[in-house]
């Protein structure tokens, strides 16, 4: 979500601290995933004053058969930065979806999206990622 491990750590600790204080006062919310929702808002808050992604048209390519091998060549940190550079709510959608920890319903709840919005954001994200992969690791032919 942040593309910066120091900031991520600050958000993580701040979220845990607040959760611990809430627990000490017996004020933990009963709703599921409140901790993740809280962490997401803190991430968005932390990047509010950062450089924002430019509102430019990003290339989009259809997914190709060789995409899996292109992705294997990716540096995980670069992928993290690429996802964190996406504008929200696409950033939240991609981060939560590729964390592979939540099902669709949970992602919709956490990111406060509708199903068609999530579907559109993910489809667009895939096509943009494919375009980036094609630029980074061009396929012969």
């Amino acid at each position: 979500m942040l593309g910066d491990s120091r900031k991520a750590q600050e958000v993580f600790h701040a979220t845990l601290r607040e959760a611990a204080q809430g627990a000490a006062h017996g004020e933990l919310p009963s709703e599921p995933f409140w901790l993740f929702r809280e962490a997401r808002w803190r991430c968005l808050e932390a990047t509010k004053n950062d450089l924002q992604p430019e509102a430019v048209e990003i290339d989009e390519h259809d997914l190709c058969a060789a995409a899996a091998s292109q992705i294997e060549q990716l540096d995980p940190v670069q992928l993290a930065i690429w996802i964190s550079a996406a504008p929200d709510p696409q950033r939240s959608a991609l981060a939560l979806f590729y964390l592979d920890e939540f099902d669709y319903r949970e992602i919709l709840d956490l990111a406060e999206l509708k199903l068609n919005e999530l579907s559109r954001l993910l489809a667009r994200g895939r096509r943009q990622l494919q375009a980036w992969l094609d630029a980074k690791f061009p396929q012969p032919g």
């Binding site: 899996a68 992705i71 995980p76 992928l79 993290a80 590729y98 592979d100 895939r126 990622l129």
Partner: peptide, 12 residues
């Protein structure tokens, strides 16, 4: 595609 991206995400 999704499986491959999720795999790389786990390596972050």
């Amino acid at each position: 595609f999704d499986r491959a991206v999720a795999h790389v995400v786990r390596l972050i």
